[in-house]
Each structure stands twice: as C-alpha cells, then as structure tokens.
Design a protein around this nucleic acid. Structure first.
Lengths: 184, 184
DNA sequence: CATTTCGCTCAACGGACGTTGACTCAACGA
DNA sequence: TCGTTGAGTCAACGTCCGTTGAGCGAAATG
C-alpha cells in the first residue's frame, strides 16, 4: 500500500464517520456538506469529489448490515429481540441511528427503513405460528421500534433512568403474549 | 362581524390548514413558506404578516389539545389506549401528524413531543400499580408511539392491510401484561 | 532528475429560501 | 363624500447551501 492510497483511505473514512455522526444527530436536512467537511478537517469540495453528492454520502452513511434472525422457537426469538434492544441502548451503530433519525422526513431514509423493517417482519413472521403471524410480527417489530425511538432519539428520561435489564424484564411477557397466539 | 374581519379569518384559516397538511406530509424543513402560500392561494408575504415567522407558523400548526386520560382501573386504561389508537388510524388530527413527522429532526417538535409523551406517561403511571409504574407507563406509551409511527408515518403495508380491530385484539394482552406487574 | 499522477484547496456560481418594505385597492367610519 | 384602515400583492435583499472547475504541491513513476 502506497503512502498516498493509505492517506486517501484514512481521509475518506474520517469524512464518512463525521457524516455518520452528523446525520445521526441532526438528520439529513440539517446536516450540511460544509459541516461534515469542517468536522473531518477537510475542504467541502473533497467530500463531493469522494462521494459524488450529499445524497450519495447519506446512502453510504446509512448502509448497515442487517442482523440476521436465527431460526428457533418463540422464546428464543423474543430473547433475541430483547438482546438486540439492549445492544441498541448501548451502542447502536451510527449508521442505523442516522437512518432512523431521518426516516420520517427524508424519502430515501423512509424507503430504507421500510426495507429493514419489512425484512425483520418477514423473518419474525416465519418464526411464529398462526395464520396472522405476519401482522403479529409487524406489531412486535413496531413495538421495538417505538421503544428504541423513545429511548435513543427522543431520549425520554423515563426510559433513560432505568437499567436495560428492567426494560427487558417488563417487555418480555408483552412480546411473548403477541408471539404466541390465543393466550388470552 | 364586518366583511373584512370575516374574510381575514377565512384566509388565516386557509393558510393554517395548508400549513398543517404540508408540515404533516413533508416535515418542517421540506415545507416552504412559498409552498404553503401557493396551497392557500395567497402571497408568501401574507403568511409572514399573519404568523410572524416559519417557526411561529409551525408552533401554531402543531398546537393540539391533549386527550385527557380518565381515571379508572387497569382494564379501562388499556381499552382507552387501544381506542385512541383506532382513532389515530382513522383520522389523527393533522396537527398531531405534523408534530410526529418532525419530532426526530426538528428541535422544537422534539420538545413538544417529549412534553406530550411525558404527560401521558405521568397520567398512565398514576393509573397503574407497582413501584416501577413510571417505567411501565413509559413502555406502554412508546409502544403506542411505535405502532402509530409504523402505521401512520412509515405506512407499513403489514399494518395497513389489517383491520384496526385485529390490531387492538393482538395488542390488548400485551398492554395488560405490562400494566399489571408480576403476571409472568 | 523530469514528468506524471492525484489528494486537496480555493473561489465562485446558481438556485432556493425566509424575510422585508413599499405599494395597491377595496372596505370602513365619520 | 372623503380620508383612513387594513387585506393582500410585488419585487427585492441577504443568506445559506450543494455543487463545480481551475489550480497547487507533494508523492509516485520512469
């Protein structure tokens, strides 16, 4: 690896990380190329040169590998969801935060969010029994979404001041009630 | 009422409704004063003259009377939440949609959303037993938020293609499990 | 060492936006 | 009827932003 290529990759990475942080904190519209460039200690023109456009930079910043849902029984599935929630509470990747932050106001972020959520709904739907599994999977997914949004993006004190384990403990029976049909 | 005053109130109302619709559909940033003016068939300068600034117009557009939570036992509380969800599915007021649409990307909308949610959490927290009632109230609230966001703003097909009554039927035991402590 | 390559900067363009002040004209009050 | 008020318009200012093309200087290449 030549010195030039190495330097370039470092700079590119610095820009991308600055962009991820700003997109996650401010959303697409309020994040400016100039602010990203300043945070990365670089000229704004360089950001364009490396990533093409603001939209392309955003697409690259929100690209994130979706965590696969391992097949198993209902209880394992619920534990897996609660586990991903705990991970989210701690250090959800900036790319995911950036996608969620803009999903209500930026069309492309919305499309990306729908794709991620639909994928998760499909996977959960195939792991739980019942003919309305798809709808119940959608509810389980949006429930996790709501808790994550409230905790990570709205930063509600009522959730932040509580240990993650307590949240999981309260959420567990609720998710199981939805995952297993006809338990009323 | 003179003809002038009446005409003015009609115009002001037309502007406000156009603003609510655009804020609800596009969010704060993507909604322009010019677009609001065009939708209300009015000059952009008139919008400023009547509402002061874009921010003031937004504050006026998202101002909405919070539905009070009537005191009652746990079952009644859950039914009330599910009922408000069904109402939301049908015709949630544009002002509330506008607030939710921008709550992740606009600081003032975020503050407004936190206020509304905290109020609801407080009310629910006083209606359910247990020493961790506050945290469980917060989870119930964010759960409703997630389902509403998924249905109304992200417009997930998996939720839209299902009758509201079915959603309420599946959600009911989950909410009850959270509202009543130690039922595991 | 001479030449090319390329990471990076600088200055600027063009457009969109919020906002403003002067102006027009019909309704109002005396 | 005549002066006043106020609803509504018009043109423009200043700013911020995404984006571009020319240019500089150091590393790579022979």
């Amino acid at each position: 690896m030549t010195e030039r290529a190495e330097r370039r990759r470092r700079t590119e990475r610095r820009i991308l990380e600055a962009a991820r942080k700003l997109f996650a904190d401010l959303g697409f519209e309020r994040t400016t190329i100039r602010a990203v460039a300043k945070a990365a200690e670089v000229d704004p023109a360089l950001v364009m040169q490396y990533f093409g456009s603001k939209q392309d930079l955003f697409s690259e910043a929100v690209r994130v590998a979706p965590a696969p849902v391992a097949p198993g029984d209902t209880d394992e599935l619920v534990e897996q969801l609660l586990g991903s929630l705990c991970m989210k509470m701690g250090e959800l990747p900036q790319g995911s935060l950036a996608m969620m932050r803009s999903m209500l106001t930026h069309p492309e972020a919305a499309a990306s969010a729908r794709a991620v959520l639909s994928r998760q709904i499909h996977q959960i739907g195939e792991s739980i029994p019942g003919d309305d599994a798809r709808m119940r999977a959608a509810l389980m997914t949006t429930i996790m979404l709501g808790v994550t949004v409230g905790h990570q993006l709205l930063e509600l004190d009522e959730l932040r001041e509580v240990p993650q384990a307590d949240i999981a403990r309260v959420l567990r029976p609720a998710l199981k009630a939805i995952a297993s049909p006809r338990t009323e």
